[in-house]
Design a protein around this nucleic acid. Structure first.
Length: 938
RNA sequence: GCUCGUAUGGUGAAAUUGGUAGACACGAUUGACUCAAAAUCAAUUUUUCGCUGAAAGUCUCGGUUCAAGUCCGAGUACGAGCACCA
């Protein structure tokens, strides 16, 4: 029999015997393994699918052998735009296209021998399934979690259609390449923002991989800050800003409102009216691309109005600018150019003052410090592109010019004086004063600790006129002009380096430090100052602590045909009325001809016999909602349906949900770890809150797999011609080979390129397994000399298969097979064991060989036990190092003590050679690991 | 720009707690079997050198340690996601 026949034979056996059927309420412990159900595209199964399905299949098969009642289901996420477009083009109903694709996918999956429980199969497009998706939407609505709102959508004027964010990436329509514009539409929304905190906290009740948790946390984007009220000068108006940095309030030099802010028209002065109006107009015309373009210069206009800074009553101008988003926070900000990059950029452009309120700290603090003020002067020679430095030689290396400020002297005159005293140059022109730095240091010559507030200055040399220096000082240092490279290499002092970086790279200071110019906050660090400022604001009723989240409500409407219809009816008298639950499912109409509308409504809007209906409340003529649900809807709860797939009374019974408890292990692509997972968790938490599921989190472990890339290390795509079709591989090399190869190809969580050469290596491994049968002699029990490696292998394969170590599990099995191969004979039990361990990965060939040996099928057997005692070695070869360098090896037994090991060590020829005439300072013996002998060096 | 991930031979990659770097494969080279090929088996394969031995070596620089791929600090390159989130 060839491998294709063997595969068919066993696939048939499993199907006929319902080997993988999971039974609800079985007495065995439940274990739920889930892989993301695929979107059945026309392209068929991808080798990337094969990778994750095989991994989970191996886990499922192993868990079954361990005595678990394993639920390992499969279904189809079949709503979506591609099927819709295909259907429009070919004048058929999308469900026909979907049916075809599902058939292909299922055949391919079955040809790979995945142990799915096909009795629970369903598609999100089955009315029996989406009936419950609709029902759950009604629950959202009834609990005030669904509402209508007007939001902008991406709209393509050429295609006359609404686009998803994915299809309009970069502001270009994916299909026709024309510019995408924003259009206002009334949409159904789910109040997901209410769940932000719960979704954050819920992560503690999961075992998600750390990077998955991080993805969720970032998406939710919690930030703790404050609301601060600003009064408009000479008016009764006021506005509120959201800030995470209320500690910098004394550095506020202007405010910005979003162009759409409601106050803009009210406060704009007469003289600025025209300018404001045209800027607002320009903003609405901007498309996505322009708004998000990198390096875009800040724009904005002055409203003519002023605000009052609540902490110091300063009068500050109010601008409008599109760098402030109306959708986040309050749509208004206080601007602190000294400590925010965007504000800095804006202030530079509009010549707005910059007030530093936070000094960066350098050096290390000491308890007994003397405070003084000082300067660092950086003098630049434009002509030669060089900087003036003083080389103190051994005394202190290379520095810029520095010095202490005398009493009754201001910082700038001090800087000019010091430059002349130390270098003789006196014709300086100030380019810029640099931010102040708080520096701690120890002065050797004075044996004292100092804390200085240092102001930096950047000067330009006007001419080379130089007075002569007195000789005494000339002996201690030399004055040198140096270039950038020399500075980078030779200046080590932290204070001078920091000042230099301010000079060449002017920017806002974002790091922590010490507050200055801030009255009651002076001397405090960032965190202390924030706490104190919030207290102050709340006490004076000027503001309050406020938490903000980036996560918005879920836009739940799509203007498409091929999705779950939203079961809402618009009645001229009663408004929006939910359908009666007993009338569900609301079916999609059975028409093959439908065209998109010109105004962006769903194609359903044109099918009048479907749209027109009666109001469930008053019975008058009414119209159905024509928007459909997003793709994410059906996939947000499918894992619950698998627990009770054919229930006609409920989406799933509490009984079934309680039996399976939760998804023990969920696997999918990295691209879904943020959004899909978040939507699914939100959906479940809502169902929990209304008492329909037993746990607030229904997914325990979430793992993300790496992609299978083409052999050229690029993503597989038709256009690149690097696509591998699993059907071809199964036909030529067999399903088992493909499965083993995809598990062996590399770290499961990492991307891996396809290699047909490597695949052939796995075929050779399978062939070797078959050849080993010739060495089997009719004897029970393990061979004595194989016992150690057999027990070790059972342990390792078990550990690796349940801990994402699929590649090392395979290599362990290769080593075991190689060991068998070196022997003339192996026992039946030796061979049986190898087949059992390999079975989760290569189920067909192992079952076949196992049957030929006369054993009962592996899929009905137990996972072999290992004896910890027998995995231990009683001796081990360890390395012997001398001063950390490997110089020899020694076989030690576990019961040898350090003294015995040392004695034997020192007798070894190559060790003696190195020790000859040297003193041993230390002898380190780490049992079972290594010996390190430390000797005195010459 | 921000967040996350990654960096080890010609290639895919191993290396539980810091403890002999390169397991297991692929490819390559040589040999055996063969009329020949395939298959199989055996051997070599990190680099350099004065080759029975030695030195260097896990992106770069620095640190901790008897001992660092692994821990700490600074940086570089590549990849992914998000992007003016105050």
């Amino acid at each position: 029999m060839n491998f294709n026949d063997i595969e068919k034979k066993w696939q048939k056996y499993w199907e006929e015997n319902e080997t993988f059927k999971a039974i609800n309420n079985d007495s065995k412990p439940p274990y739920y393994i889930l892989v993301e159900f695929p979107y059945p595209s026309g392209a068929g199964l991808h080798v990337g699918h094969v990778r994750s399905y095989t991994a989970q299949d191996a886990l499922a098969r192993l868990k079954r052998m361990q005595g678990y009642n394993v639920l390992f289901p499969m279904g189809w996420d079949a709503f979506g735009a591609p099927a819709e477009q295909y259907a429009i083009k070919n004048h058929i109903h999308p469900k026909e296209a979907v049916k075809e694709n599902i058939k292909t996918f299922k055949r391919q999956m079955q040809s790979l021998g995945f142990s799915f429980d096909w009795s629970r199969e369903f598609s999100t497009t089955d009315p029996l399934y989406y009936r419950w998706t609709q029902w759950q939407f009604l629950q959202f609505y009834k609990h005030n979690m669904a509402y209508k709102a007007t939001v902008p959508v991406n709209w393509c004027n050429t295609c006359k259609t609404v686009l998803s964010n994915e299809d309009s990436a970069g502001g270009i329509c994916e299909r026709c390449g024309s510019l995408v514009v924003q259009k206002e539409k009334s949409q159904w929304m789910l109040k997901m923002s209410d769940y932000a905190e719960d979704l954050l906290k819920g992560l503690d009740d999961t075992n998600f991989a750390e990077k998955v948790k991080l993805g969720q946390i970032n998406w939710i984007g919690k930030s703790v800050g404050a609301h601060v009220k600003f009064k408009v000068y000479d008016s009764n108006e006021e506005f509120t800003v959201f800030t995470t940095r209320c500690d910098t309030l004394f550095g506020v030099t202007y405010c910005v409102l979003a162009p759409e802010h409601e106050l803009v028209d009210k406060i704009t002065t007469l003289s600025q009216k025209e300018e404001v109006k045209s800027y607002k107009k320009a903003c609405t015309l901007k498309n996505e691309l322009e708004r998000t373009e990198l390096n875009k210069e800040k724009t904005g206009v002055f409203t003519g109005a002023y605000a009052i800074n609540p902490v110091n009553n300063e009068k500050i101008p109010i601008y409008i600018s599109d760098y402030v988003l109306s959708s986040y926070g309050t749509g208004a900000i206080m601007a602190v150019p000294a400590h925010d990059e965007r504000d800095y950029e804006f202030a530079k452009k509009f010549n707005i003052p910059i007030i530093q309120v936070l000094e960066e700290e350098t050096g290390s603090k000491h308890s007994d410090e003397t405070f003084k003020k000082s300067i660092v002067a950086i003098v630049y020679d434009e002509k030669n592109d060089k900087y003036l430095t003083i080389n103190w030689h051994e005394l202190g290396g290379r520095l810029f010019i520095g010095g202490s400020i005398k009493d009754n002297e201001d910082a700038i005159s001090c800087a000019i004086r010091e430059v002349e005293e130390e270098t003789g140059y006196k014709n300086l022109e100030l380019i810029r004063e640099l931010p102040k730095i708080n520096h701690h240091y120890y002065a050797y010559n004075k044996d004292k600790y100092f804390n200085i507030e240092c102001t930096g200055f950047l000067f330009k040399l006007k001419n080379n006129e130089q007075t002569s220096l007195n000789l005494d000082e000339d002996e201690k240092f030399t004055v040198e002009w140096v270039d950038k490279d020399t500075i980078a290499k030779e200046i080590k002092d932290e204070l001078h380096l920091k000042t230099y970086s301010y000079a060449i790279n002017p920017t806002a200071i974002l790091s922590d430090g010490i507050h200055i110019n801030s009255e009651f906050l002076n001397g405090l660090n960032k965190e202390e100052a924030i706490t104190k400022m919030i207290e102050y604001l709340e006490e004076k009723r000027l503001g309050s602590k406020k938490v903000n989240y980036k996560m918005r409500d879920w836009i739940f409407s799509r203007q498409r045909f091929w999705g779950e219809p939203i079961p809402m009816i618009n009645c001229p008298d009663c408004g929006w009325v939910p359908m009666n639950e007993s009338d569900l499912p609301l079916l999609l109409p059975d028409v093959a001809e439908y065209v998109p509308t010109d105004n962006g409504e769903s194609p359903l809007a044109k099918i009048s016999e479907w749209v027109n209906c009666k109001c469930p409340k008053c019975g008058k003529d009414a119209k159905r909602e024509t928007d459909t649900m997003p793709n994410w809807a059906g996939s947000s709860w499918y894992f619950l349906r698998f627990m009770d797939a054919h229930n006609e009374e409920e989406f799933a019974s509490m009984d079934a949900l309680k039996y399976w408890k939760k998804v023990d292990w969920y696997n999918g692509g990295m691209e879904h770890t943020a959004r899909h997972l978040l939507y699914a968790r939100f959906w479940v938490q809502f169902l929990y809150n209304i008492g329909l599921v037993p746990n607030k989190e229904m997914i325990w472990t979430r793992v993300s797999h790496g992609m299978v890339l083409g052999s050229n290390n690029e993503k597989m795509s038709k256009s690149k011609g690097n696509v591998i079709n699993p059907d071809d591989i199964v036909k030529e090399y067999g399903a088992d080979t493909l499965r083993v190869y995809e598990m062996f190809m590399g770290d499961y969580e990492q991307d891996a390129p396809w290699s047909t050469e490597s695949l052939k290596g796995c075929k050779r491994f399978i062939d070797k397994i078959i050849r080993l049968k010739n060495k089997v002699i009719d004897e029970e029990n393990y061979s004595k000399d194989l016992e150690n490696i057999i027990h070790k292998s059972i342990k390792k394969v078990l550990h690796d298969t349940t801990n994402l170590g699929y590649n090392t599990a395979i290599s362990t099995l290769m080593i075991l097979a190689n060991t068998y191969d070196k022997k003339d004979h192996i026992t039946k039990e030796d061979y049986h064991l190898l087949l059992t361990l390999l079975n989760p990965y290569a189920p067909h060939i192992t079952e076949e060989l196992n049957e030929q040996l006369g054993y009962k099928p592996i899929c009905e057997s137990k996972w072999p036990e290992y004896d910890e005692e027998k995995t231990l070695d009683n001796s081990k070869v360890i390395g012997i190092q001398i001063n950390g360098k490997l110089r020899g090896e020694l076989e030690v037994t576990t019961d040898e003590n350090e003294l015995e090991v040392k004695e034997r060590c020192l007798k070894l020829e190559n060790i003696k050679k190195y020790l000859d005439g040297k003193d041993i300072i230390k002898f380190i013996y780490i049992p079972n690991k290594i010996v390190n002998i430390i000797i005195k060096k010459d």
